[in-house]
Amino acid sequence: MRENTMSSSRLRSGDAPPSRFLSPSRIAIARQRRGLTKTDLARQLGVSPRTVNTYENNGAPLSRAGDLSGALSFPVGFFHLADCTDLSDAEVNFRAGRTTTAIQRKAAKAAGAIAMDIAGWIAQRFSLRAPNLPDLSGHDPRTAARMLREAWGLGTGPLPNLVQLSEFHGIRVFSLPALAEEVDAYSVWQGETPFIFLARRKTPERSRFDVAHELGHLTLHRNEDVAAAHEREADIFASEFLMPHTAIIEHLPQNPSVDELMEFKTIFRVSAMAATYTSHKVGWLSDWAYRQNCAELERRGYRHGEPEGMSVHETSRVFPQVFGSKHYLVADAAVELCLPAGEVHALTFSTALRMVGGSSVEPMVNVAARPVKLRLV
């Protein structure tokens, strides 16, 4: 993936616009987030598609801000801010099915651009961990997965909450809202900061695999444009990262039964089919035993779901503490970034909707001396 850096001309929320025109990129971002084509937006505005194209290339007159706000359900101020980060197709590896449409992919990229605004807002008020993600380009995916486990001191055992593990190592993880979540997941480097965007429309086990898959992209493909081979490499990385070869040998007998695989998948928090497939791939399950186990798992309903799987999706520790810190609310971010509050909720795992309760776990947010500067640790 190619690196992309924020423009030094980005305005802070509330600053005056630099020209007599509304931001062209923000018009495009808002339209894509709503799943509209240029023709759709033109119809709502009562103009031609060519005019909308001009708006998205050169900016719209300031007088059209109210009309755009009404058509796209974004506050008027959103269109007055400096341009958003532009995520090009060449730098985004979508973990998406073949049925995912271009509109859904654009909605996902637009959500990512908005999330980067939120990330910038948080970074101005909190000290976040610096990214700790080695560049493993050129390594075999399985070797790279073992190297990342070693770099992070994870051994060969079951991994903890992968969203929180990623946050702990400086990766910014955001959830994908409706429409955008059809892509499942994607990741990108923004300058020196890695981002993962994650849907939660499938099983929690699948979501864990998606995070591991995106870690593979971030470590293996940082300076590369999207290529067909990358998806397969990231899948291999994810399997080894979640279920190391040595762990399978240590925890499972050779040619394990379905019940033994079920116990393993519960411990490692992976899907039953993934545990079965990986055991076969590393030679710990014969071809015959693999076919028998797959047939039994399909009979039990594991081909397209996880009947006895994890009860909840893994979520962030950062956002509940940012917005439950007694200093900031979601409404504060929404107002200052000129976003609908629902957009902020949707991109931050909706955890900000709940108060942060007591916990025996050391908090990730510490309050420093005035002026208020919080530190995520």
Rank of each mutant, 00 (worst) to 15 (best):
T5Y: 15
S7Q: 12
S7I: 05
R12F: 06
S13T: 03
S13Q: 05
S13V: 07
S23M: 10
A28L: 06
A30G: 04
R34V: 06
G35L: 10
T37K: 02
K38Q: 11
L45Q: 11
V52R: 06
N53C: 07
Y55L: 04
E56K: 10
L62S: 02
L62D: 00
R64D: 01
D67C: 03
S69I: 08
A71H: 09
L72W: 09
L72I: 04
G77A: 08
F78R: 05
A82V: 00
D83P: 08
S88T: 15
E91N: 14
V92R: 10
R95N: 12
T100E: 02
T101R: 09
I103S: 11
A107H: 01
K109W: 00
K109F: 00
A110Y: 10
A111H: 04
I122L: 13
I122Q: 03
I122N: 01
Q124K: 04
L128F: 06
P131L: 06
L133G: 09
P134M: 09
A144D: 07
A145I: 13
A145F: 09
L148N: 00
G153A: 08
L154E: 06
L165S: 11
S166E: 04
S166I: 09
E167T: 05
E167R: 10
F174V: 08
P177W: 02
V183T: 12
D184R: 14
Y186L: 03
W189A: 01
G191L: 09
P194R: 08
I196L: 14
L198I: 15
L198M: 13
R201S: 15
T203G: 11
P204S: 13
E205L: 08
E205T: 09
E205M: 08
R208I: 14
V211L: 13
L215Q: 07
H217W: 15
D225F: 09
H230M: 10
S239H: 13
F241C: 09
L242G: 12
H245W: 11
H245M: 07
H245P: 00
I248L: 15
N255I: 02
D259E: 15
L261T: 08
F264P: 02
T266G: 00
T266D: 11
I267M: 08
V270Q: 04
A272V: 13
A274P: 00
G283V: 08
L285V: 03
R291E: 14
N293K: 06
C294L: 14
A295D: 15
R299H: 13
Y302K: 11
E306C: 07
V312W: 04
E314Y: 01
R317V: 15
P320F: 12
Q321E: 15
L329A: 12
D332N: 15
P340R: 03
E343C: 11
E343V: 15
E343W: 00
V344F: 07
L347V: 11
T348D: 01
T351V: 14
T351E: 10
M355V: 09
G357M: 10
N366S: 14
V367K: 07
A368S: 10
A368R: 14
V372K: 10
V372W: 01
L374I: 12
V377R: 13
